[in-house]
């Protein structure tokens, strides 16, 4: 009877708790009836039990019949889009890792073993992250879309031809390449900021070869911002995924776009306004690497440019956020005028 117990366990273990005991009891009765019929009053043995279980078929199939409706993390509604986004993200991640490896190898060929180990670790760890976040984003989107659909069916008025959304105007279309580019861009910077912030800086050439990079940032301070950069990056990925799925400007696309612009702009201003963020030794390192001579006029000019740049980057971010925000706002108003304000 051991096999019977195991069979029943496989069938019932994944079923809802409140039904489990009842189904188990009923199924056990059935199997016992079937065995009894087979042996016709003779000895019940394992081979009869085995025969009956084979007749009942794969326990996973039986369990599936007991479950009323199929359950999805990502339903057929979005699965195709999910697969293509996932592919792009994974390809991007791998390419960027190899790119970063290449750069660090050119800069410092003596540590190739270390760099290679780093590459392998990154190739294992980062795609898993990418996979997890993409899946989570899509699971959420899918859940929301199914809920919306259900509400539409259950609603009093239900579906009506008059309620069909208009065919998107070519004018308001979002090109797929635009969303893909956005996703690639976000992933590129996420990976760069996370793994190689030391590569963001002034390049030092000697005899035509890239010899070193003097980082713009104080790497320790920069790392403290990483969690926020990640949150922002994921928001960006979410925004571009919404654009990809909707394929045209809609109220929700406008909303996520403007929100993202404002949040990332505020964060950028806040982050780049911190004087500690910058590499305090930047000018000294320029001298050390022989880019400029100590005490020269060129050094003075460069130092001025450096401090001006630090100051102006904040204004630049602020201004571009403001412009982008206002432009999108105006575009949204035009959109609502031409579509009426009902469509969401």
């Amino acid at each position: 009877m051991e096999q019977v117990n195991r069979y029943i366990y496989v069938v019932t273990q994944k079923l809802p708790k409140q039904q489990r005991a009842d189904i188990e009891r009923e199924l056990r009765g059935l199997i016992e009836d079937m065995i009894e019929e087979r042996v016709m009053g003779g000895e019940e043995d394992e081979s009869a039990a085995e025969q009956v279980l084979i007749e009942l078929g794969n326990p996973h199939d039986l369990a599936a019949k007991y479950r009323s409706e199929p359950r999805y993390l990502i339903s057929p509604l979005l699965f195709d889009t999910y697969l293509s986004v996932l592919k792009i993200i994974l390809i991007c991640i791998v390419l960027i890792q190899i790119f970063v490896f290449g750069i660090s190898f050119i800069l410092d060929p003596t540590h190739v073993q270390e760099q290679f180990n780093h590459l392998i670790r990154a190739l294992i760890f980062v795609p898993v992250q990418g996979f997890a976040w993409t899946t989570l984003t899509f699971a959420f989107l899918d859940y929301a879309m199914r809920k919306e659909k259900k509400a539409g069916i259950a609603g009093k008025s239900g579906w009506h031809p008059a309620k069909l959304p208009p065919i998107p105007d070519a004018k308001w279309e979002i090109k797929q390449s635009e969303s893909v580019l956005g996703i690639m861009f976000t992933i590129f910077f996420l990976v760069l900021f996370t793994f190689s912030p030391h590569l963001i800086g002034a390049t030092v050439f000697s005899e035509g070869n890239l010899k070193n990079v003097i980082p713009f940032f104080n790497l320790e301070v920069f790392r403290e911002y990483l969690p926020f950069i990640w949150i922002l990056g994921l928001l960006g990925l979410f925004k571009d995924t919404v654009r990809w799925v909707k394929k045209s400007w809609t109220n929700s696309v406008f909303l996520t776009h403007i929100l993202f612009t404002i949040i990332s702009g505020l964060f950028g201003v806040f982050m780049f306004a911190n004087p500690e963020l910058y590499n305090a030794e930047f000018m000294n390192e320029l001298v050390v690497y022989g880019m400029v001579e100590a005490g020269s006029e060129k050094l003075d000019t460069l130092a001025k440019i450096w401090s001006l740049a630090i100051e102006w980057i904040v204004y630049l971010i602020g201004a571009s956020t403001l412009i982008e925000g206002i432009q999108s706002g105006v575009k949204w108003i035009r959109f609502r005028r031409s579509h009426g304000s009902k469509i969401v």
């Binding site: 009923e26 199924l27 059935l30 009836d33 079937m34 009942l56 199939d61 039986l62 019949k65």
Partner: peptide, 24 residues
Amino acid sequence: YGYSLVSVLEEKGISIDPGTLYPL
């Protein structure tokens, strides 16, 4: 009960597999 129903239906020419009938 389920299994008796299988036999009754079988007798009347409708064959149904218990693995289908019980969930139904």
